[in-house]
């Protein structure tokens, strides 16, 4: 177990370094010159050369990359090209916690409700409730999050005025964004937990428990849920993925000052230092989420030994 952990952790460093190299090279060869963007209407060849020198863009590629990595290791990502007064590291510090908090709330809601719905659907298989839940799962996985957002805003914010249309700061501002973010992971967790419980219900030990006269609730709690839990736990990592990417839509719609909106704005304005950092931050997040999922899977399942 410890050896596996060490191996998985050792794998993350080259991965992050490789990603950094990739986005660095991509940024260098991608269309759209940052100098041109920065100068915009004031573009002159002399001014461009001067700025290029100031940003270090005229140095050899290898030197630029080495410098970049050295600074990134100290969490110094330079200043935003579009808004030079703001260091990128500060932007990340302010906006990333917002995105993470939203994602955590959405995952918690999806995990609780999804497990309950999935267990319910599996226990009452082929009932009307099961069919309804199955239908909801297909809808939840198919309907895009911005359509879910449109419907929720139309009904809860515009028609019934229960929650604000957009904004950030008040607790009631959280309700609609979290609901939108939770929709897809909810469907996903429901589907996996239904399949998982159904499989456990078909096991021989459940029949044994039933034949010795154990009550249904006791069978469910003691035998079924415990054995069905493993696949459900590992869906949480996936659910986190849905919630983090859903933020690209939700933060734009609800005007939330999170990391995803910063990334989208940076892409639209070709603010390259911010784009580069956002890619790195998201890569790091998912590397660690996957690491956590793999390790928890190994820790939870006694049949898996590395």
């Amino acid at each position: 177990m410890l050896r596996y952990l060490a191996y998985r952790v050792a794998l993350t460093a080259p991965l992050l370094l490789g990603t950094a190299l990739l986005i660095f090279l991509a940024g260098h060869y991608a269309p759209g010159d940052p100098v041109q963007v920065l100068l915009a209407d004031h573009y002159t060849p002399e001014g461009a050369a001067h700025l290029r020198h100031e940003l270090g863009l005229d140095r050899p590629l290898a030197a630029q990359f080495a410098g970049y990595i050295g600074r990134a290791a100290r969490f110094d990502f330079g200043a935003s090209y579009v808004n030079p007064a703001r260091p990128v590291a500060e932007i990340v510090r302010q906006t990333l916690p917002v995105s993470l908090r939203l994602a955590a709330l959405a995952v918690a809601a999806a995990a609780l409700a999804g497990t309950a719905l999935g267990v319910c659907a599996a226990v009452f298989e082929r009932s009307a409730a099961d069919r309804l839940i199955q239908l909801g799962v297909i809808a939840g996985l198919s309907v895009p999050s911005f359509v879910v957002a449109a419907v929720l805003v139309l009904l809860f914010a515009l028609r019934w005025r229960l929650f604000p249309v957009a904004g950030w700061g008040h607790p009631s501002d959280y309700v609609l964004p979290v609901a939108v973010l939770a929709a897809a992971p909810l469907a996903y967790v429901t589907r996996i937990s239904r399949a998982s419980v159904r499989r456990a219900l078909a096991e021989d030990y459940v029949r044994t428990a039933r034949s010795k006269g154990l009550r249904r609730s006791a069978i469910l709690a003691r035998h079924v849920l415990r054995n069905a839990a493993l696949p459900i736990v590992t869906t949480i990592g996936m659910a986190f993925g849905y919630a983090i990417t859903g933020a690209f839509v939700v933060e734009v719609i609800f005007n939330i000052p999170g990391m995803a909106r910063v990334a989208v704005d940076a892409i639209l304005q070709r603010d390259y230092s911010v784009i580069q950092t956002a890619v790195l931050v998201y890569t790091a997040i998912f590397t660690f989420v996957n690491l956590a999922v793999d390790v928890s899977y190994a820790a939870l399942n006694p049949r898996i030994r590395y």
Binding site: A26, G27, P31, T245, I267, T283, F286, T287
Partner: peptide, 19 residues
Amino acid sequence: LLIAFPSLLLAVLVTGIFG
């Protein structure tokens, strides 16, 4: 490596880098 990334994120990053 690539499968571990949510697809929307990958798509956003690729269009983000190349426009």
